[in-house]
Design a protein around this nucleic acid. Structure first.
Lengths: 266, 266
DNA sequence: CCTAGACTGGGTACGGTGTACGGAGATTAG
DNA sequence: CTAATCTCCGTACACCGTACCCAGTCTAGG
């Protein structure tokens, strides 16, 4: 008899799921599963068998139940992914250790944690986390960054801007690397073979004179390891933040009136 | 009778496709389609109907042919996506105009171009461009950036590092924004509704005292427009690069021997 | 001109996906 | 004990990418 749920109603349901206000109805048989078990199973499948293996049937099989059973606990696949994300989110080990150490150490730690997290769970790229970002763990992650940026003379908007910028770099770089690994794996072509296949066409392109700057690069230009390049980029970005902070320290920007709640931003 | 193609053979085929060495066989009827028409149709469908609409059947229907016909021209969907990417890639308008203006103007222009490109073609996020990056247009895009970074005392590896870092930030930020838009659109929930639904749970979280730094933010902390925040982040990142360049200008790093081809990086 | 052979278009089919629907059985309030 | 209400899940539908294969078309060689 439940008529179709309105979008708003669906959203309310998802928020409840994320913040886990799970009161059971009194009637009827006890559930055999829990939300936590489902999320754990989904993460296990995703980590073990790859991003493409995340399907409702596969996760259900992992738990020894029918596919449709999952829909008793989760509205749909998108919400399951959001729950998976919130599970692995939250302040990482390195960030917690660096919590009291100053902004540069902390941002470095947060970047490392997030980078490692993405490499460990490549399926994170599949998740649209922009809307359900407001899960409890995600919020805790934001808190620790904003805290480190408080007291440097930044406006509130700048604090958020720094956080978003850092996240953009880390996720963008992680995506780049993960896509590369995925391409290598699923095409079944190794790095060496890939490059050796391209050699003739690239040599012709270089010899054409259309790409002088590329041709002038040394032979080892692309030899840098992924992680070193990440550190290099992160270092540059933090230097840029440092320049901003130095400017604000000599002339603090005026912030809008501070109120006790970030929610009324329509 | 064609036995299954080896991965290497498939790769060779894809490279041929990208670089367009399209000699027709003599026998048999003339093809009614061309690769270009297919790629154009796919881009049109993707731009008009969204990322999810990119399917072989849909693209084929757009061209008025059967789904399987496309496989006469393209090995599979992944290759079609790669071709779509190379089509829209290449130096953007702003970058071309800024080509002779110094590294900061050029990197800014490239970032703007790439950012706009992603917003105009959100399906770019779907494409694994790390491997087929070596299409002619992509290579031209790399050339223009590396050229702007030549003569600043950077090593070859640093030039590539700067390019990858910038790309990481731009694509990461664009992804963030696109995912946000997609979430708003396909959930059917407007921004206002989304935030008003979250209000009670957020207010409770803020009142809990667990998130003091978040609670201390001003009310307008999240009010910044997407584009302003992008400019803010880009500015920071370029300041970071500037610091590196300044250091190199006073003490240039020694580069490896420069050879005329970047291809032999195993 | 004729015909053999190579090529193109595309119908059908297979195994996958997310999920709507509804029935069978379990549980508990009254 | 009964009826209400819940859980589990089999079936079904509309999609997807693409392997296979046949019919129709075109051209090279005779």
């Amino acid at each position: 008899m439940t008529s179709e749920l309105s979008p708003t109603e669906q959203l309310r349901r998802s928020i409840e799921l994320l913040w886990g206000s799970g009161e059971r109805p009194a009637r009827g048989p006890k559930p055999t599963l829990t939300l936590d078990k489902i999320v754990d199973a989904a993460i296990a499948v995703a980590d073990r068998e790859g991003t493409a293996a995340i399907s409702m049937r596969r996760v259900a099989a992992e738990l020894g139940v029918g596919a449709m059973t999952l829909y008793r606990y989760v509205p749909g696949k998108a919400e399951l992914l959001a729950l998976m994300l919130d599970r692995v989110s939250g302040p990482g080990d390195e960030a917690v250790r660096a919590a009291e150490k100053g902004w540069r150490e902390l941002l470095t730690a947060v970047a490392h944690d997030s980078y490692r997290l993405h490499l460990a769970h490549p399926w994170l790229l599949q998740v649209n986390w922009t809307r359900p970002v407001m899960g409890p763990n995600s919020l805790a992650g934001a808190e620790i960054v904003v805290a480190a940026l408080t007291g440097l003379g930044l406006t509130s908007q700048e604090r958020i801007g720094v956080m978003i910028t850092l996240d953009g770099f880390v996720t963008g770089y992680a995506r780049h690397r993960i896509l590369y690994d995925v391409a290598a794996e699923e095409s079944g072509v190794s790095d060496e073979e890939f490059w050796s296949q391209h050699l003739p066409v690239l040599e012709r392109a270089m010899a054409s004179g259309n790409y002088p700057a590329m041709a002038a690069l040394s032979a080892d230009a692309f030899d840098t390891g992924w992680d070193e390049t990440f550190e290099f980029g992160l270092h540059c970005l933090l230097d840029g933040f440092a320049a901003l902070f130095a400017a604000r320290r000599s002339a603090p920007a005026s912030d809008a009136a501070e109120v006790g709640g970030a929610a009324d931003c329509s």
